[in-house]
Nucleic acid binder design. Structure first.
Length: 267
DNA sequence: ACCCCTGTTCGGCG
DNA sequence: CCGCCGAACAGGGG
């Protein structure tokens, strides 16, 4: 599920644990979940530390612990964060759980496309690791300028807009449904060459979709209005919320793309 | 049984 | 070397 707003929503679910000390850690022996990190190191590293911060950047998560220890994660396709009572028994898909006196902070992912990606001690509780600070500007940040959008469109002028919007190096946090929503609002076909898009308009619509998604989905997972393509794009037989034409669903670069053939004509 | 999938990475190819 | 693309990853749900 998780794109920008869903990741923000899940991150918020762990914030009640901020300030609480981890007394016990469940870290399953799942090499796919703990890729370049050993579950033993996570178990030993987190025990006795307090969770100090929860951050997101696009679809990335970063948890800060006392003593300047940082753990980064990604939710992949099916990852989720949740909290549970302190006596919680992790199920077989809950590969990581941090137990504080008050609750269990649980990271579940049945498909294992997500997991813990980095685990490192910098010794500085206030400053995230260098690699985190070097991530590209987020869409709602000051650094996400019209010039930057223009550079992306110029650099990949012949690439279809849809797959370009999914490029996390340029558009952190944009996933499949957000990309479809942006193109719908711009009235551009998903296969439109990126070079034909207007950078200012793209930036404005991207920021609008991100802001609204964070406000609506990121807050409490409520549904966006019916006027969004979001409400209609998931299944076959949906109708355009603007003109009622049957929506078209097709596969572009291996990903489902949904658009209105009337509002977003090809060519 | 079969097909689908809101993400990322990797290898092959031009 | 770069960009593009499909396949692979893994497993639950329709």
């Amino acid at each position: 599920m998780p794109e920008l707003a869903e990741v923000a929503y899940y991150a918020r679910l762990w914030t009640p644990g901020i300030g609480e000390t981890v007394r016990r850690v469940h870290a399953a022996e799942k090499p796919r979940f703990f890729r370049d990190v050993s579950p033993a190191a996570v178990r030993e590293g987190l025990a006795g530390r307090a969770l100090l911060s929860v951050r997101t950047h696009g679809k990335n998560l970063l948890f800060g612990f006392s003593g300047g220890l940082w753990m980064a994660g990604h939710l992949g396709m099916t990852g989720e964060l949740k909290t549970a009572p302190p006596d919680h028994e992790p199920d077989k898909h809950e590969h990581l759980a941090l137990f504080t006196p008050n609750r269990a902070l649980v990271f579940r992912d049945f498909r294992l496309f997500g997991g813990v990606r980095r685990f490192e001690e910098t010794g500085d509780e206030t400053l995230p690791p260098d690699w985190w600070r070097a991530l590209p500007p987020e869409i709602l940040s000051e650094g996400f300028t019209k010039e930057r959008v223009a550079a992306a469109l110029r650099r990949h002028a012949k690439t279809p807009l849809k797959p370009l919007l999914l490029d996390q190096a340029w558009f952190p946090g944009v996933g499949n449904w957000m990309a479809d929503e942006v193109l719908f609002r711009l009235k551009l076909h998903p296969a439109t060459p990126a070079g034909k898009a207007d950078p200012a308009a793209l930036r404005r619509v991207l920021r609008g979709v991100c802001r609204a998604a964070l406000r609506i989905i990121g807050a409490d997972w409520s549904d966006p209005p019916k006027s969004w393509l979001f409400q209609h794009r998931w299944r076959d037989g949906g109708a355009c919320p603007r003109c009622a034409a049957p929506l078209k669903r097709e596969v572009l670069r291996g990903r489902t793309a949904c658009h209105c053939p009337v509002c977003q004509p090809a060519g």
